[in-house]
Protein backbone atom coordinates (compact mmCIF):
# COMPACT_ATOMS: atom_id res chain seq x y z
CA UNK A 1 0.00 0.00 0.00
CA UNK A 2 2.73 2.43 -0.90
CA UNK A 3 2.26 5.64 -2.86
CA UNK A 4 0.00 8.60 -2.33
CA UNK A 5 -3.60 8.35 -1.26
CA UNK A 6 -4.83 9.35 -4.72
CA UNK A 7 -2.76 6.83 -6.60
CA UNK A 8 -5.01 4.49 -8.59
CA UNK A 9 -4.99 0.79 -7.73
CA UNK A 10 -5.27 -0.25 -11.36
CA UNK A 11 -3.60 1.60 -14.22
CA UNK A 12 -3.90 0.28 -17.77
CA UNK A 13 -1.84 2.14 -20.36
CA UNK A 14 -2.36 1.52 -24.08
CA UNK A 15 -2.96 -2.23 -23.58
CA UNK A 16 -2.97 -4.19 -26.83
CA UNK A 17 -3.63 -7.79 -27.68
CA UNK A 18 -4.31 -9.82 -30.82
CA UNK A 19 -5.41 -13.37 -31.36
CA UNK A 20 -3.54 -14.16 -34.55
CA UNK A 21 -4.63 -11.55 -37.11
CA UNK A 22 -7.52 -10.27 -35.02
CA UNK A 23 -6.76 -7.28 -32.83
CA UNK A 24 -8.92 -7.66 -29.72
CA UNK A 25 -7.53 -4.86 -27.59
CA UNK A 26 -6.47 -1.78 -29.53
CA UNK A 27 -5.00 0.40 -26.86
CA UNK A 28 -7.02 0.35 -23.63
CA UNK A 29 -6.37 3.18 -21.16
CA UNK A 30 -8.09 2.95 -17.83
CA UNK A 31 -7.58 3.82 -14.18
CA UNK A 32 -9.44 2.45 -11.19
CA UNK A 33 -9.09 4.10 -7.79
CA UNK A 34 -8.97 2.18 -4.55
CA UNK A 35 -12.50 1.48 -3.36
CA UNK A 36 -13.98 2.35 -6.74
CA UNK A 37 -16.55 0.20 -8.52
CA UNK A 38 -16.14 0.29 -12.27
CA UNK A 39 -18.61 -1.32 -14.66
CA UNK A 40 -17.55 -2.14 -18.21
CA UNK A 41 -20.31 -2.53 -20.74
CA UNK A 42 -20.19 -3.02 -24.47
CA UNK A 43 -21.25 -5.33 -27.28
CA UNK A 44 -19.99 -8.92 -27.30
CA UNK A 45 -16.63 -9.26 -28.99
CA UNK A 46 -15.61 -5.77 -27.89
CA UNK A 47 -12.74 -7.11 -25.76
CA UNK A 48 -14.29 -6.55 -22.30
CA UNK A 49 -13.65 -10.05 -21.03
CA UNK A 50 -10.23 -10.26 -22.65
CA UNK A 51 -9.20 -7.03 -20.93
CA UNK A 52 -10.43 -8.35 -17.59
CA UNK A 53 -8.51 -11.58 -18.11
CA UNK A 54 -5.34 -9.64 -18.94
CA UNK A 55 -5.50 -7.98 -15.53
CA UNK A 56 -4.88 -11.29 -13.75
CA UNK A 57 -2.86 -12.80 -16.58
CA UNK A 58 -5.27 -15.53 -17.62
CA UNK A 59 -4.46 -13.90 -20.97
CA UNK A 60 -1.21 -12.17 -21.77
CA UNK A 61 -1.24 -8.74 -23.39
CA UNK A 62 1.31 -7.96 -26.05
CA UNK A 63 1.90 -4.25 -25.65
CA UNK A 64 1.17 -1.51 -23.14
CA UNK A 65 1.29 -1.76 -19.37
CA UNK A 66 -1.05 -2.86 -16.62
CA UNK A 67 -0.11 -1.85 -13.08
CA UNK A 68 -1.75 -3.01 -9.88
CA UNK A 69 -0.39 -0.59 -7.31
CA UNK A 70 3.30 -0.47 -8.21
CA UNK A 71 3.44 -3.96 -9.75
CA UNK A 72 3.67 -4.27 -13.50
CA UNK A 73 1.46 -7.26 -14.27
CA UNK A 74 2.98 -10.18 -16.18
CA UNK A 75 6.18 -8.44 -17.22
CA UNK A 76 9.29 -6.73 -16.01
CA UNK A 77 10.70 -3.72 -17.71
CA UNK A 78 14.20 -3.84 -19.13
CA UNK A 79 15.00 -0.50 -20.69
CA UNK A 80 12.09 0.02 -23.04
CA UNK A 81 11.33 -3.64 -23.50
CA UNK A 82 8.85 -5.86 -21.73
CA UNK A 83 10.18 -9.23 -20.62
CA UNK A 84 7.64 -11.85 -19.51
CA UNK A 85 7.80 -12.73 -15.83
CA UNK A 86 8.50 -16.35 -14.95
CA UNK A 87 5.26 -18.17 -14.15
CA UNK A 88 6.24 -18.41 -10.48
CA UNK A 89 5.96 -14.65 -10.16
CA UNK A 90 2.76 -14.42 -12.20
CA UNK A 91 1.28 -16.90 -9.72
CA UNK A 92 2.27 -14.57 -6.87
CA UNK A 93 0.71 -11.56 -8.59
CA UNK A 94 -2.62 -13.36 -8.98
CA UNK A 95 -3.03 -14.10 -5.27
CA UNK A 96 -4.69 -10.86 -4.39
CA UNK A 97 -6.79 -10.39 -7.50
CA UNK A 98 -10.08 -12.22 -7.08
CA UNK A 99 -12.01 -13.32 -10.13
CA UNK A 100 -15.62 -14.40 -10.56
CA UNK A 101 -16.54 -16.15 -13.79
CA UNK A 102 -19.64 -16.31 -15.93
CA UNK A 103 -19.77 -20.11 -15.55
CA UNK A 104 -18.97 -20.03 -11.76
CA UNK A 105 -16.23 -22.67 -12.22
CA UNK A 106 -16.52 -24.19 -8.76
CA UNK A 107 -14.31 -27.24 -8.28
CA UNK A 108 -16.74 -30.00 -9.07
CA UNK A 109 -15.19 -32.64 -6.81
CA UNK A 110 -15.21 -30.52 -3.68
CA UNK A 111 -17.95 -29.31 -1.35
CA UNK A 112 -18.65 -25.60 -1.11
CA UNK A 113 -16.56 -25.37 2.05
CA UNK A 114 -13.68 -27.30 0.47
CA UNK A 115 -13.83 -25.01 -2.55
CA UNK A 116 -13.39 -21.98 -0.29
CA UNK A 117 -10.62 -23.27 1.98
CA UNK A 118 -8.57 -24.81 -0.84
CA UNK A 119 -6.55 -21.77 -1.91
CA UNK A 120 -6.11 -20.20 1.56
CA UNK A 121 -4.66 -23.51 2.77
CA UNK A 122 -2.60 -24.46 -0.29
CA UNK A 123 -1.51 -21.02 -1.45
CA UNK A 124 -1.36 -18.94 1.72
CA UNK A 125 -0.57 -21.82 4.06
CA UNK A 126 -3.39 -20.99 6.46
CA UNK A 127 -4.15 -23.60 9.14
CA UNK A 128 -7.32 -25.57 8.43
CA UNK A 129 -9.19 -24.25 11.47
CA UNK A 130 -8.53 -20.62 10.54
CA UNK A 131 -9.45 -21.21 6.88
CA UNK A 132 -12.70 -22.92 7.87
CA UNK A 133 -13.64 -20.19 10.29
CA UNK A 134 -13.06 -17.55 7.62
CA UNK A 135 -14.96 -19.64 5.05
CA UNK A 136 -17.98 -19.92 7.35
CA UNK A 137 -17.95 -16.14 7.88
CA UNK A 138 -17.87 -15.60 4.11
CA UNK A 139 -20.63 -18.15 3.55
CA UNK A 140 -22.72 -16.27 6.07
CA UNK A 141 -22.02 -13.05 4.20
CA UNK A 142 -23.23 -14.53 0.88
CA UNK A 143 -26.13 -16.35 2.55
CA UNK A 144 -24.85 -19.86 1.87
CA UNK A 145 -24.18 -21.25 5.34
CA UNK A 146 -26.74 -24.01 4.91
CA UNK A 147 -24.98 -25.30 1.80
CA UNK A 148 -21.45 -25.46 3.21
CA UNK A 149 -21.23 -29.22 2.79
CA UNK A 150 -23.10 -29.49 -0.51
CA UNK A 151 -21.38 -30.39 -3.75
CA UNK A 152 -21.73 -27.85 -6.59
CA UNK A 153 -23.83 -30.26 -8.64
CA UNK A 154 -26.61 -29.93 -6.08
CA UNK A 155 -26.71 -26.12 -6.19
CA UNK A 156 -28.62 -23.70 -8.38
CA UNK A 157 -26.64 -21.35 -10.58
CA UNK A 158 -27.19 -18.47 -8.19
CA UNK A 159 -25.98 -20.52 -5.24
CA UNK A 160 -22.93 -21.66 -7.18
CA UNK A 161 -22.08 -18.09 -8.08
CA UNK A 162 -22.46 -16.89 -4.50
CA UNK A 163 -20.15 -19.71 -3.38
CA UNK A 164 -17.68 -18.71 -6.11
CA UNK A 165 -17.71 -15.12 -4.81
CA UNK A 166 -16.99 -16.39 -1.29
CA UNK A 167 -14.15 -18.51 -2.70
CA UNK A 168 -12.56 -15.48 -4.34
CA UNK A 169 -12.99 -13.37 -1.19
CA UNK A 170 -11.25 -16.01 0.92
CA UNK A 171 -7.92 -14.90 -0.58
CA UNK A 172 -8.50 -11.38 0.82
CA UNK A 173 -8.18 -9.78 -2.60
CA UNK A 174 -7.49 -6.08 -2.96
CA UNK A 175 -9.24 -6.16 -6.34
CA UNK A 176 -12.22 -8.20 -7.51
CA UNK A 177 -12.90 -8.89 -11.19
CA UNK A 178 -16.36 -9.99 -12.28
CA UNK A 179 -16.70 -11.42 -15.79
CA UNK A 180 -20.41 -11.27 -16.63
CA UNK A 181 -21.32 -12.81 -13.27
CA UNK A 182 -25.04 -13.13 -13.99
CA UNK A 183 -25.10 -13.93 -17.72
CA UNK A 184 -25.48 -17.66 -17.13
CA UNK A 185 -28.21 -17.28 -14.52
CA UNK A 186 -32.00 -17.50 -14.57
CA UNK A 187 -33.76 -14.19 -13.97
CA UNK A 188 -34.98 -15.51 -10.58
CA UNK A 189 -31.46 -16.14 -9.27
CA UNK A 190 -29.81 -13.12 -10.87
CA UNK A 191 -31.16 -10.87 -8.13
CA UNK A 192 -29.60 -12.83 -5.26
CA UNK A 193 -26.16 -12.66 -6.91
CA UNK A 194 -26.48 -8.95 -7.70
CA UNK A 195 -27.46 -8.32 -4.08
CA UNK A 196 -24.25 -9.99 -2.89
CA UNK A 197 -22.15 -7.97 -5.33
CA UNK A 198 -23.90 -4.74 -4.27
CA UNK A 199 -23.19 -5.47 -0.61
CA UNK A 200 -19.54 -6.06 -1.52
CA UNK A 201 -19.43 -2.80 -3.47
CA UNK A 202 -20.75 -0.82 -0.52
CA UNK A 203 -18.12 -2.41 1.74
CA UNK A 204 -15.40 -0.50 -0.11
CA UNK A 205 -13.97 -3.34 -2.22
CA UNK A 206 -12.30 -2.23 -5.46
CA UNK A 207 -14.16 -3.94 -8.27
CA UNK A 208 -14.22 -4.14 -12.04
CA UNK A 209 -17.45 -5.65 -13.33
CA UNK A 210 -18.14 -6.64 -16.91
CA UNK A 211 -21.90 -6.81 -17.17
CA UNK A 212 -24.95 -6.56 -19.41
CA UNK A 213 -27.19 -5.65 -16.49
CA UNK A 214 -27.64 -1.91 -17.13
CA UNK A 215 -29.92 -1.30 -14.17
CA UNK A 216 -27.39 -2.96 -11.90
CA UNK A 217 -24.48 -1.02 -13.38
CA UNK A 218 -26.37 2.22 -12.87
CA UNK A 219 -27.07 1.40 -9.26
CA UNK A 220 -23.77 -0.08 -8.13
CA UNK A 221 -21.08 1.63 -10.23
CA UNK A 222 -19.09 4.71 -9.33
CA UNK A 223 -18.12 4.95 -12.97
CA UNK A 224 -19.25 3.20 -16.16
CA UNK A 225 -17.19 2.72 -19.30
CA UNK A 226 -18.31 1.66 -22.76
CA UNK A 227 -15.92 -0.60 -24.58
CA UNK A 228 -16.16 -1.04 -28.33
CA UNK A 229 -13.78 -2.65 -30.81
CA UNK A 230 -11.06 -3.05 -28.25
CA UNK A 231 -11.06 0.52 -26.95
CA UNK A 232 -12.70 2.54 -24.22
CA UNK A 233 -15.14 4.75 -26.13
CA UNK A 234 -16.95 6.52 -23.34
CA UNK A 235 -16.50 6.94 -19.65
CA UNK A 236 -18.73 8.68 -17.14
CA UNK A 237 -20.44 8.52 -13.80
CA UNK A 238 -23.63 6.41 -14.08
CA UNK A 239 -26.00 9.44 -13.92
CA UNK A 240 -24.35 10.96 -16.98
CA UNK A 241 -23.67 7.65 -18.68
CA UNK A 242 -27.30 6.62 -18.68
CA UNK A 243 -28.61 10.21 -18.75
CA UNK A 244 -30.19 12.23 -21.54
CA UNK A 245 -26.99 14.05 -22.43
CA UNK A 246 -25.08 10.87 -23.32
CA UNK A 247 -23.54 10.82 -26.82
CA UNK A 248 -25.65 9.45 -29.64
CA UNK A 249 -23.48 6.40 -30.19
CA UNK A 250 -23.80 5.39 -26.55
CA UNK A 251 -27.57 5.87 -26.68
CA UNK A 252 -27.66 3.71 -29.79
CA UNK A 253 -25.80 0.93 -27.98
CA UNK A 254 -27.95 1.20 -24.88
CA UNK A 255 -31.09 1.02 -26.98
CA UNK A 256 -29.96 -2.34 -28.39
CA UNK A 257 -29.75 -3.68 -24.84
CA UNK A 258 -33.08 -2.54 -23.47
Amino acid sequence: MSGGARKPLVRALDVRKSFGETAVLRGVDLEVQRGEVLCIIGPSGSGKSTFLRCINQLETYQAGRIYIGDDLIGYRESGNRLLPLPSRQVVLQRRHIGMVFQQFNLFWHMTVLENIVEAPIRVLGQPLAQAREQAMRLLDRVGMTAKANAYPMKLSGGQQQRAAIARALAMNPELMLFDEPTSALDPETTGEVLAVISELASSGMTMIIVTHEMGFARQVADRVVLMEEGQIRHEAAPEQFFGDKAPARLKAFLSTIH
Binding site: N56, I97, M99, W108, R122, M171
Partner: peptide, 23 residues
Protein backbone atom coordinates in the same frame (compact mmCIF):
# COMPACT_ATOMS: atom_id res chain seq x y z
CA UNK B 1 -11.80 -31.52 -16.81
CA UNK B 2 -13.47 -28.23 -17.62
CA UNK B 3 -10.95 -25.55 -18.55
CA UNK B 4 -12.95 -23.08 -16.48
CA UNK B 5 -12.04 -24.90 -13.27
CA UNK B 6 -8.37 -24.78 -14.19
CA UNK B 7 -8.68 -21.05 -14.81
CA UNK B 8 -10.49 -20.56 -11.52
CA UNK B 9 -7.70 -22.38 -9.71
CA UNK B 10 -5.06 -20.28 -11.44
CA UNK B 11 -6.97 -17.10 -10.63
CA UNK B 12 -6.76 -18.07 -6.94
CA UNK B 13 -2.97 -18.09 -7.18
CA UNK B 14 -2.49 -21.86 -7.35
CA UNK B 15 0.69 -23.01 -9.09
CA UNK B 16 0.66 -25.34 -12.10
CA UNK B 17 1.53 -28.28 -9.85
CA UNK B 18 -1.22 -27.44 -7.40
CA UNK B 19 -3.72 -27.11 -10.24
CA UNK B 20 -2.63 -30.47 -11.65
CA UNK B 21 -2.63 -32.38 -8.36
CA UNK B 22 -5.57 -30.76 -6.60
CA UNK B 23 -7.97 -30.05 -9.46
Amino acid sequence: VALGQVEAARSLGMSSWQVTWRI
